[in-house]
């Protein structure tokens, strides 16, 4: 079971996560009495990078119209900033006393804090990206909801004109998202649902066309109406399943276990 649910997050955090745990073990196993190196230079580099990240993060928050992102991201930035301060303090303490035990603890705490903060930050951002895709999915759901009130060819043409770009965007976004996920089962569900949506869309339009034509000819439309509603409902179910799976992370399933 992968720890990080997207390949991007995994590629950024996994190496640091491994190094932090390795170092914690090394640190715990190390015999007391070893002098610590001077870490002033690398700590300063980290501090500068954190300052930059915080600046970029704040700009992103201010420019975003995603209320959840605006609410959740500041805490992650503060976490990273606080961790950076711990590293600075540790470095200063080690300069004064290379054997300082509290300084070592601060170093580990700082490293873990930066890892947690950046992890939260990436998750916040990732969730925001997912919300953007879900917004597009919901547009498709809204169009599907009006399929059953389309009664003229003119309205049907407009319906197709409205639905097509939305479906194309959903298809492109979900396809890209699926490729980003590390969780195989989630990927498979997204691929399956997206395939169904792509197959069902032209059949639905065809079904709607038959309904409209029968109606124009004054013929019975009960069966055509039922068929159209069934297809729209199937597409709605598939899109809802896509929305559900997009929101899943491997962490959810760990909690479930």
């Amino acid at each position: 079971m992968p720890v990080f649910h997207t390949k991007t997050i995994e590629s950024i955090l996994e190496p640091v996560a491994q190094q932090v745990s390795r170092l914690v073990i090394l640190h715990e196993e190390a015999e007391d009495g070893n002098a610590m190196p001077n870490l002033e230079r690398p700590v300063l580099a980290v501090s500068n990078a954190v300052a930059n990240l915080v600046k970029v993060g704040r700009e992103t928050i201010n420019n975003s119209d995603d209320q959840i992102l605006r609410q959740e991201m500041p805490a992650s930035l503060q976490r990273v900033e606080k961790a950076s301060k711990l590293l600075e303090e540790a470095s200063a303490m080690l300069n004064a006393d290379p054997y300082s035990q509290p300084a070592r603890k601060k170093l580990i705490e700082g490293a873990r804090g930066i890892l947690q903060g950046t992890s939260n930050l990436l998750l916040c951002f990732d969730e925001s990206e997912v919300r953007k895709i879900i917004k597009e999915c919901k547009k498709v759901l809204d169009y599907l909801a009006v399929a059953e009130v389309i009664e003229t060819m003119e309205d049907l043409v407009q319906f197709v004109k409205d639905l097509s770009p939305c479906l194309t965007k959903v298809s492109r976004d979900v396809d890209a998202r699926e490729k980003e996920l590390t969780h195989m089962v989630h990927r498979e569900i997204l691929v399956r649902c997206l395939d169904s949506v792509k197959t069902l869309a032209p059949i639905l339009i065809c079904g709607m066309k038959i309904y409209v034509q029968l109606l124009a000819q004054g013929k019975k439309v009960d069966e055509a109406g039922e068929n159209r509603n069934y297809l729209a409902a199937r597409m709605t179910d598939e899109i809802n399943e896509i929305i559900r799976v997009l929101q899943l992370t491997t962490y959810d399933e760990d909690e479930w276990d």
Binding site: N34, A45, L115, T118
Partner: peptide, 28 residues
Amino acid sequence: LRVGWEQLLTSIHRNINEVENQILTRDS
């Protein structure tokens, strides 16, 4: 241990830069 800490801080540095790039890329 000496090399370990320096390596970790270098990785953290790189990690922060990558997070920043992620934000900038997706934000644009």
